[in-house]
Simulated scan of single mutants.
Amino acid sequence: MRVRYVDDVKVLAQEEVVRLDSDRLQTLYEQLGDSGAEDVVCRAMEELAVRLSMTERLFRQDRYDEMRKAARSLTGIADQIGMNTLSRVACDVTHCIDARDPVALSATLSRLLRIGERSLTEIWDMQGVRV
């Protein structure tokens, strides 16, 4: 058997485009006022961070039923504050669990974590600039 060495390794940059529904955020501010909307958004961001971490931990522990519940809750929370991409990918994770497809689940969970991080950063940055 002949061993072949690779001289040039390429690393794919995985950048996700995140779309926030600024109209949804504007509606929250109109309905709840500045203070109320900021409270909802901050609590939602905290909960999203906790649930993203929980979803990853449950995956690593092979606890798929609980992971499905955590991913489903991400969908609702993300929808509430206009994180459409995050909501859609969390829904994709639940579909992968339902399909019992571990390869797709692993890839989709990785995407969920990337988008979750980007979404939280994006909405945090938007908080500095009133929607």
Rank of each mutant, 00 (worst) to 15 (best):
E16Y: 02
Q31D: 15
R43H: 10
E47S: 11
Q14G: 12
S22Y: 12
E47M: 06
G33F: 03
V11H: 08
D39Y: 01
L52D: 01
A44R: 07
C42Y: 04
Q26W: 05
A13L: 13
Y29D: 00
L25V: 13
Q14R: 14
L32I: 05
S53I: 03
V41A: 02
D23G: 01
T55Q: 01
L20Q: 08
R51D: 10
S22L: 14
Q14V: 15
E47Y: 01
G36V: 05
Q26E: 15
A49I: 01
A44H: 09
A44P: 09
G33H: 00
Q31C: 10
Q31F: 10
V50D: 07
V9G: 01
T27L: 08
E30A: 11
Q31K: 15
L28D: 02
D39C: 02
L28V: 01
Q31I: 13
Q31W: 10
A37H: 07
V40Q: 05
A37T: 04
S53G: 09
L32R: 08
E56K: 12
E46I: 09
R24S: 12
S53A: 11
L12S: 13
G36S: 04
Q14L: 15
L32N: 05
V11Y: 10
A37W: 06
T55F: 03
E47I: 02
V9A: 00
C42V: 13
R24M: 12
E56F: 01
R43M: 06
L52G: 07
E56H: 09
S53F: 00
V18T: 11
L28Y: 00
R19G: 03
A49N: 05
V18E: 06
D34W: 03
V50R: 09
D23V: 02
Q26F: 07
D34Q: 11
L52A: 04
R24G: 11
Q31V: 15
